[in-house]
Design a protein around this nucleic acid. Sequence first.
DNA 1: AGGTTGACCGTCA
DNA 2: GTGACGGCCAACC
Length: 104
Amino acid sequence: MTPDEYVEAVLELVERIPPGQAMSYGAVADALAERSGRASARLVGAIMSRHGSGVPWHRVVNASGGMPPALAAEARARWLAEGTPLRQDRVDMRAAGWWPGEGM
DNA sequence: AGGTTGACCGTCA
DNA sequence: GTGACGGCCAACC
């Protein structure tokens, strides 16, 4: 799998996350590891930073259920808009956590 | 070629 | 709950 294909795979997966649910960067990396052979949360973060503008990036959060300060306000507004389970301005991953294969 | 940086994560204190 | 550390891997000096 080439780097470009990996980017595509990440964006595809993010687009499949249902509204009101979320995955962590690590979960995305983990889910793709099966067919990409590599897993790096940091790499997924870098990809989202560079190519994430066209996908529902607010459905990908860090392991704590939050986002860096620069994006926290925008992300919170979107979570509220689609009814994502929150807990103190962080996504409640216990309730909102999603994995490819569910809901299909 | 080597050093830093970053939308990250698990572990240990 | 917080903070330090090491591992991670591509992008960018």
